[in-house]
Amino acid sequence: MRAGTLHAFEHWLLNYKRTWHGTLFSGFLLPVLFIVGLGMAVGGYVNGSSAIGGVDYVAFIAPGLLASTAFQISSGELTWPVFAATRWGSQYKAMQASPLSPGEILNGHLLYGLLRGVSSALFFFIVMAVFGLLQSAWAPLALLAAAATAASVIGATYAVSMSAKHESALSMVHRFAILPLTLFSAVFFPLAQLPSYIQPLAWISPVWHGVELSRAATLGVAPPWPIAAHIGVLAVWAVGGWYAARRSLLKKLKV
C-alpha cells in the first residue's frame, strides 16, 4: 500500500474523531438491540425449529447481523460523505491540491469505509462471544466473512454516490438497495422462506453470500453453496466495484 493512500485514510479518520459519538448507535448498539429485541420476541416461537437448522433464533440471526452490520456501516459511510466530498465539502479539492493521486484518494476513502464496517463487526463479534453465540471453532472466520461482505460493496456504493446527480439519489440508495439487501438476504429468515422465483435475486446479492459464510462459521455448518462459489461472487463484486469507483472518480475530477 502506498503512503498516499494512508494519508487520505488518515484524513477521514481525523474527521471521524469529530463525529464518532453520532455513530455509536448505528455502528454498535443497533445490532445488539436487534438480537435482544427479536431474539426475545421471536425466539420463543422458533427456537430449535428445523427451518433454521435446529438452533436458537438468536444464534441464527446473530451471524447474519454480523455480516449485514459490516455491510450497512461500510456502505452507509460511502454515500453522503462521498457525495459531499466533491460538492459541499471541499475535502477532495484540498486533497487534489496535495501530491495525492486520484487512486490514493480513492483507496484511502475506501479503506476508511471498510474499516468502519469491520470495527463495528469486531465489536458485535465480541458481544456474540459474551452471549455465547459462537458455537464453533471456525467462528473467527465469521469476521473475515463480514469484512469480505463490506469489501464487496464499498466500490459499488462509492461509484453510485460519486456519480449521483442529486442528493435525493442517495436516499434512494438507502431505501432501494441498502435496506432491502439487509432485509432479504437471509439475515432474519432462511432464503427458503422466500417464494422460489425471488430466490435467484438473493443469489446475486453480495450480502446473502456474506451472511451464509458468516453463519457457516459461527454455527460450524456447511454453507448452502460451495465456499469457493460464495467467495467468488463476493470477489466479483469487490473487483468490479473498485473499477467502477475508479472510473466515477476520474470522471468527476476531470470536470
Binding site: 421471536v42 427451518a51 433464533y57 432485509l183 432479504f184 432474519f188 429468515f189 432462511p190 422466500l194
Partner: peptide, 12 residues
C-alpha cells in the same frame, strides 16, 4: 414482507 411475512413463515 421481511419481518412480517418472511419471519412469519418461520413462526407460523
Amino acid at each position: 414482507f421481511s419481518l412480517g411475512v418472511g419471519v412469519g413463515a418461520l413462526v407460523k
